[in-house]
Each structure stands twice: as C-alpha cells, then as structure tokens.
C-alpha cells in the first residue's frame, strides 16, 4: 500500500556508508566481494552516494601498512570513496611513533581510522599513545571488535570488552569513536546501551538492526548515529531504507544519520 506519510527520497539523504570492506576474499557464504572495480556500481544499485572503505588485507594480514597503502593506490581518483586506515597500537610505549603514524595517515589524505580492538583488546594502557595521537588530530575512529582471523567485520563485543572500552572512551573525550558493524540477531551485549549513555563521544551505526540505534537517536540525538551496511558481509538492501522510512525521526535528523554526521567528523580531522 501507499505509505500514509511521504518519506524523503533516499537520494536526497545522500547515504554515506561507514563500513565497506574492499578486497578479494575467499570466504564461504560470501561469494560476492567488493573491489575498486565494482564497488561504485554496487553503490549505485543501492543508492549509496559515498562510502568509507577499508582494506580487507589490512584487517587480516600484518603488516597493516601494506593493505592500507594498496587501498590508496586502488581507489585513487574515485572521489566517492573515502579511505580508512586499519590501525592497531604499537606494542611498546611510543607516543612519537603513534603521532608519526597519524601524521602519515593524514598526509596521505586518510581522515578516518579503523581500530582493531577485537585483535588487540581495548586496554587503555595499550591504546593510550595511539588514541592520544588520534584525539589531538580529531580523527574519527571506527571500532572493529571482530576477533583475530575473522574476515567479516560483524561483531558483538561482550560486556567485559565494553567495560574496558569505556575507560578508553572516557580517557579521550574528544575522540569520536564509532561502534562499527556491532550487530547480532538476538541483540547486543547488555553493557552496550549503558556505555553509549555514559560516553558522549561514542556513536553507533545502524547495522545493529534491532532498535538500539533508534533508541539512541531518539533519546540522545541523531548526532550519535551513522549509516552503515557492512557490505559485502551483509546485504546492503537490508539497511538502505531504515532511516528513510523511520516514522519518528524528522528530515534533518535523517540527513544527519544518513551522512552529515560523518561528513562533519571527517571535515574536523586536522
């Protein structure tokens, strides 16, 4: 039937997907992967205007700089794609090294980082140097809790991991941190929403599917939520219209969630 109220045209919302993995993957159950050659056509099919893209290789294979650098070469000139570097902290205390890592990233035109907290647990004493360097430059960070060797970005960190994360978030209040592809069919860990209510610099994306993101947007504001699909591990069609057709959020709120929040965060990285 006809929708009783006219919703915005999805193209008007200028979707910016915050979680897209590029790279050939050999993964059972995921026969279609995304590369620089096909991703724009896939984005066009699903009305996605822009995307933050990270390297499959950088997530799974050390040293990460190889995958990060390859990503830049592969997407050069593709203005709708914004590179994200996959990072984990240096093993030894090294504030200068962490600052240099962030300098290199920004000099290369990379304005967002994907922090591998599923592979290196979010213990503040391990992440302190890197988070300080990122916070000083206001680099938005996507938090990846997928465990070691898991190809998919989908994850459901447990409450104990989130307890550790809270300390990191509160220690770096000017560092935007996005719970990226935190998604579980039966819901997320009990500490997830409590963490979001307590750490104002933490955002979540809409791949949580269940009504967490809607509750967050309605309770604390649409500036705390960003759009994502998690493709190719998730079918993007699942997420395209969820903000567009929400019956409570107004148009300005929808625009923020669908892309303007992230655009603002990327622009603020210096």
């Amino acid at each position: 039937m006809q929708a009783t109220a006219k919703m915005p045209d999805v193209r008007e919302l200028a979707l910016l997907d915050s979680c897209v993995t590029l790279g050939r993957s050999c993964l059972a159950g995921v026969p279609e992967y995304l590369t620089a050659e096909n991703v724009l056509a896939v984005m066009d099919k699903y009305d996605i205007a822009e995307a933050l893209v990270h390297s499959n290789e950088a997530r799974l294979v050390q040293p990460r700089w190889r995958g990060n650098q390859r990503l830049l070469r592969e997407i050069e000139g593709l203005k709708r794609l914004h590179p994200v570097w996959v990072l984990s902290p240096p093993a030894r205390p090294d504030p200068a090294g962490a600052r240099q890592m962030v300098d290199e990233m920004l000099s290369a035109g990379v304005r967002a980082a994907r922090l591998m907290m599923g592979q290196v647990p979010p213990l503040h004493w391990m992440w302190k140097d890197l988070c300080e360097a990122l916070e000083a430059r206001r680099v938005p960070c996507l938090l990846d809790f997928a465990p070691l060797r898991q190809a998919s970005t989908q994850c459901v960190p447990d409450s104990l991991l989130l307890d550790e994360l809270l300390e990191v978030c509160l220690a770096h209040p000017a560092l935007p941190m996005i719970l990226s592809h935190h998604s579980g069919g039966l819901g997320l860990a009990a500490a997830t929403m409590p963490l979001l209510y307590r750490a104002g610099n933490v955002l979540m994306d809409i791949t949580s599917v269940v009504d967490y993101w809607r509750r967050l947007a309605r309770d604390l504001g649409p500036q705390r939520v960003v759009f994502a699909t998690g493709m190719p591990f998730y079918e993007p069609a699942i997420f395209i219209a969820n903000v567009q057709y929400d019956e409570v959020l107004d148009l300005p709120a929808k625009r923020l969630i669908c892309g303007d929040n992230l655009r603002r965060l990327l622009a603020a990285a210096r």
Partner: peptide, 18 residues
C-alpha cells in the same frame, strides 16, 4: 522481525532485488 527491527529491513531486500 519487526517490530524490534525496522520493518524496512525486509522490504529493502525485496524491492532492491534485481
């Protein structure tokens, strides 16, 4: 799986299918 999920999760799957 509405109404925990947005009902559009399922609609999107169908309408965007080729």
């Amino acid at each position: 799986d509405a109404f925990m999920n947005p009902i559009s999760v399922g609609i999107g799957l169908v309408v965007y299918a080729d």
